Amino acid sequence: MVAKASDVDSTVAAPRPLMAVILRICAALVLATMSALVKLAGEAGVHLTEIVFWRQAITLPIVFGWTLIVADLASLKPNRFSAHFVRALFGITGMALVYGAVTLLPLAEATTLNFTAPIFAVILAMVLLKEEIGRYRWTAVAIGFAGILIVTQPGNATIDPFGVAIGLGGAFMIALVSIQIQDLNRTETAQGIVFWFCMLTLPLLALFLPFFGSAHDASGWLLLGGVGLTGAAGQLLLTTSLRFGSAATVIVMDYTALVWATTYGWLFWDRLPGPALWLGAPLIIAAGTIIVLRERHLARRKTVGGT
């Protein structure tokens, strides 16, 4: 549900593009670190359901404490509860898919598949918003699709096709959730968006915990704690970045995550991406960049035309 103009809070932060970009770069680093911890936890035998549960359970008190420091409890009051509920359903689905891809694929490849989110955003704009897509964005979609084919190498057993499908599903959900968060930012606080995401998804995850939870040693709990801490920090950074800049402006900064993912892959798994990723990733990144630049151009032209 999109906010009406009368619902918009007058305290919403004014656009600050540079701040939005810095926050998004920090978010990319923090979330790449979280992905490495998720992969390590999965290799240590922790089930995906339990990883997601503790990710949310640890985030909740952190967000609550952060709220007491930077604002007050009134800032957590939802203005559009139904929008939070929809965001929670889509968000938890996307989280499970993204984490699943990390456990199934090499870290750099899983991260690269997330970069297809702008491509899916174009498709969503056409299907859901009935937006007319011009030749620039269709060209970007074609370039991005070519990059996906190069990275995933269909028919080649070197990369898990199921993992690829999960990763692309996660990217689709990233695009959908980014649109939802940008809309929620019009009437809700950053901490409120994260708080209600945790509050609404934890009970659902708790239902599955008895079936998938298990005992862990100290290293297992440290990994889960690290996932929760980095996840909370990353989510706050992502949400706040969208308060200071539009998704079309800041999402291109997510590409810096590939640098960190490649570094972690080398440090922890002694693995560097093969030629296919280095050939395909630039195409996917180029597609996303074209889409972002075109979105900014169209937004600027619309603003000028309306004045």
Rank of each mutant, 00 (worst) to 15 (best):
G155K: 00
R24I: 01
G134M: 11
L237G: 02
L207R: 00
A110N: 11
V46P: 01
D7F: 00
H47F: 14
H47A: 13
Q182K: 15
R186F: 04
T152N: 00
L224W: 02
S75H: 10
I193T: 09
L242G: 00
A20F: 03
R243L: 02
D183M: 06
F81D: 04
A74G: 14
G167Q: 00
A247P: 07
I159P: 02
G163I: 09
T158W: 03
S241C: 12
G65K: 10
V86F: 05
C198P: 00
C26D: 01
L272V: 15
L48Y: 04
L242Y: 08
A121W: 10
T59H: 14
R24V: 00
Y136K: 08
K77D: 01
I174Y: 09
C26R: 01
N185W: 02
F195P: 04
A157Q: 09
D254N: 12
V21T: 11
G167K: 00
G45L: 12
A247N: 12
V86W: 08
N114M: 14
V52E: 12
E131R: 14
A140F: 14
S6M: 10
S178T: 12
L298F: 02
V70L: 07
V194R: 08
I58T: 02
A74H: 04
G213K: 01
D217M: 15
A20H: 04
E43Y: 11
G225V: 01
V21W: 06
G155V: 07
E43L: 12
L223Q: 09
T103D: 11
G45M: 08
T67N: 11
A281V: 12
A44P: 02
D9H: 07
T230M: 11
T11D: 13
S214W: 10
S178G: 12
G226V: 00
L60M: 14
S10V: 12
G231T: 08
A215Y: 09
K77A: 05
R301P: 05
I143W: 09
P78Q: 14
I25W: 05
T249F: 13
L89W: 13
I181A: 05
